[in-house]
């Protein structure tokens, strides 16, 4: 299953909720959630821990727009919109944690 997060995990509980409920699968960070994919933030450890359980992706155009494309945590995979489409197609279902 693909879990899509679109809010900054530094100010919003969506990612926490997703990590609490979801068992495994893939997580895609888009829009303001891309801040969660950057090194040196207060939640970097949480993202690194989650990598054991989930494959973590980030939407690169959103990261570039926010000036943080050079700070991606190692092991987080970048995708473009085409990659976003393939993630949705490649998983049985998806949930947007709005």
């Amino acid at each position: 299953m693909l879990h899509i997060i679109n809010k900054s995990p530094l100010t919003n509980g969506s990612l926490d909720c997703c990590l609490r409920v979801a068992e495994s699968g893939a997580i895609l960070l888009i829009e303001d959630a891309v801040y969660g994919a950057t090194k040196g933030s207060a939640i970097e450890g949480k993202i690194r821990d989650a990598m054991g359980q989930f494959k973590i992706h980030v939407l690169l155009p959103d990261l570039e727009a926010r000036g943080l494309a050079d700070r991606i945590i190692e092991g987080v995979t970048t995708v473009d919109y085409g990659g976003f489409v393939e993630l949705v197609a490649g998983n049985k279902n998806c949930q947007s944690w709005l």
Binding site: E23, G25, N93, C94
Partner: peptide, 18 residues
């Protein structure tokens, strides 16, 4: 519990959130 909820979610065809 959270994880039971997660399992149930995995089994769905369509998950909608507003």
């Amino acid at each position: 519990g959270s994880k039971e909820m997660g399992e149930l979610m995995d089994q769905q065809d369509v998950v909608l959130s507003f």
